[in-house]
C-alpha cells in the first residue's frame, strides 16, 4: 500500500522540482548578469556561473561610488529611494482601490438582483477586449484636462475604480460559495453592505489575498501609463526609472548589467510582500479550513 502511494508521490515531487528550476533559471541568469562585469556579459552568456562576481553594478545604478565603470550606453543612476516610495504609493493606492471597488461590484453581480445586471457585467468583461492602444490617447487627454498630469491621482485614475479582471475573478468566487450564511444574516436584518463586508468578504480571504498579490505585482510592473502620465521624478515609479537602462539609442545594446542589477533591486520589495502576504494566505486558509 505504502509503496503504491509513494511512486506517484515521487513523480509529483520530481515534477514540482522541474517546474521550480525552469521558473528560477532565467531569474538566476538575470541575477548572474547583474554580478558580471559589463565587459564580460556576452562571453559568459552561455555559462551558469561567473568567475569573478562583482557587486559594483548595484552600487552604480544607485548612484553610489562603484568599482565598476558604467558602460557607455548606461542611463543616469536611479534615485532608488524616491522611485521606491513612488512605487509603494502607486501600488498601494491602486490595489486598495481595485480590491474594494471590484469586490463590491463583484458581490452585486453575484448576489443582488437588479435590471440590466448581466448586461452590465458582460460589458465589464468586454472592457478587457478593447486594445489598450486606442484607449490611452483619449485617457491621456482626459487626465491632462483634469490637470492631473504628474500626479498619483492621474496615474491611478483609469484603473482604481475597477479592474474587469478583478471583478470577474471575485464574482466567480462569490458564485461558487454557498449563500445560506448570507441569507440568514439578511433575515436577521443586516444591511446588504454589512452582509458583504462582515460575512461574504471574510469568506473569500484566500482568493482576496491571491488577488492582492497578483494585482500588486501587476501594478508594480505597470509601465506605459505611468510613463506617459508620471514622468517627473517626484511621481516616477520604479518601472519607469528602470526604462532608463533599456534602450538609450535606436541601435545598440541596453546596459545589461545595470538593467539587471536595477531589476533585481526593484523586485526585492515585491518579494518581501510576497513572503509576508503568502504567509497570511496560508494562515487565513488554515483558519477558514478549520471552521
Amino acid at each position: 500500500m505504502s509503496t503504491k502511494l509513494n511512486l506517484p508521490k515521487l513523480f509529483g515531487y520530481a515534477g514540482l522540482a522541474v517546474f521550480g528550476i525552469i521558473s528560477l533559471l532565467p531569474i538566476w541568469m538575470a541575477l548572474k548578469t547583474a554580478i558580471t562585469m559589463p565587459t564580460d556579459v556576452f562571453s559568459t552568456a552561455n555559462s551558469l556561473w561567473v568567475n569573478n562576481p562583482v557587486f559594483g553594478n548595484f552600487l552604480r545604478v544607485l548612484g553610489l561610488p562603484s568599482d565598476v565603470p558604467p558602460p557607455a550606453n548606461s542611463g543616469s543612476p536611479i534615485n532608488f529611494m524616491i522611485a521606491l516610495r513612488n512605487s509603494v504609493i502607486y501600488t498601494g493606492l491602486l490595489v486598495t482601490g481595485q480590491l474594494f471597488f471590484s469586490s463590491l461590484a463583484a458581490y452585486a453581480f453575484a448576489r443582488l438582483r437588479f435590471p440590466g445586471r448581466d448586461a452590465i457585467f458582460y460589458s465589464f468583461i468586454a472592457a478587457t477586449m478593447i486594445p489598450s492602444i486606442v484607449l490611452f490617447i483619449p485617457n491621456f487627454i482626459l487626465i491632462r484636462q483634469l490637470g492631473l498630469l504628474n500626479s498619483f491621482a492621474g496615474m491611478v485614475a483609469p484603473n482604481i475604480l475597477m479592474l474587469p479582471f478583478a471583478v470577474f475573478f471575485l464574482r466567480q468566487f462569490f458564485l461558487s460559495t454557498p449563500k445560506e450564511l448570507e441569507e440568514a444574516a439578511r433575515l436577521d436584518g443586516l444591511s446588504w453592505f454589512k452582509v458583504y463586508w462582515h460575512i461574504a468578504l471574510p469568506l473569500q480571504r484566500g482568493p482576496l489575498a491571491t488577488l492582492a498579490i497578483l494585482l500588486s505585482i501587476q501594478a508594480w510592473n505597470d509601465f506605459f501609463w505611468p510613463f506617459l502620465v508620471g514622468q517627473k521624478e517626484n511621481v516616477q515609479v520604479m518601472a519607469v526609472a528602470l526604462a532608463n537602462y533599456q534602450s538609450q539609442t535606436g541601435q545598440g545594446q541596453p546596459d545589461w548589467t545595470g538593467l539587471m542589477a536595477a531589476v533585481m533591486l526593484s523586485i526585492i520589495p515585491v518579494l518581501i510582500l510576497l513572503v509576508f502576504f503568502g504567509r497570511r494566505i496560508v494562515e487565513s486558509l488554515q483558519t477558514s479550513g478549520m471552521k
Binding site: I89, L148, F152, A153, V235
Partner: peptide, 26 residues
C-alpha cells in the same frame, strides 16, 4: 482621489522654461 492629488506637488513654471527632449543617455 483628493489625497492622491495632495500628494502630487504643484509645479510652478518659470517665465521661460524651454523643454528639451533627447533619447541618448550618453
Amino acid at each position: 482621489l483628493v489625497s492622491a492629488a495632495v500628494l502630487a506637488p504643484t509645479t510652478v513654471f518659470a517665465q521661460d522654461t524651454v523643454r528639451y527632449w533627447m533619447w541618448d543617455g550618453q
